[in-house]
Amino acid sequence: MGTSTPATSTSGDSLADILERVLDKGVVIAGDIQINLLDIELLTIKLRLIVASIDKAKEIGIDWWETDPALNRASGELAAENRNLRQRLHHLESGRSD
C-alpha cells in the first residue's frame, strides 16, 4: 500500500489515514464484548486532530491536548504526585502541631 504518484505528498501508512478508517469506517456488528464506540469516536476526534494537525495546530497556537487530562498520561502522574505532596504536608503539619 501507500502507492504514490507525483501528485501525492504522503503514503497511505500515515496514522491519521489508518485511524480515520479503522475507527470511523468498516462494518459495525455488535460483538459479545460491548465497547462503547461512541466514547471511542469522541476520543478519537481529538486524537485524529492531534495526529493530523499537530504541526499546524502548534503553528496557530492550539495546544489544548497538552492540558487535556484524557489525553495526557503525565497528568495522572501529576495527580499522584499532588496526593503524595498533600499527604506529606498533612503529615508535617500534624507533626508541628504536636
Binding site: 468498516g26 462494518v27 456488528i29 460483538g31 459479545d32
Partner: peptide, 8 residues
C-alpha cells in the same frame, strides 16, 4: 473490514 474492537 470490521470496525476495531469487535470481539466475540
Amino acid at each position: 473490514p470490521f470496525r476495531i474492537c469487535t470481539i466475540f
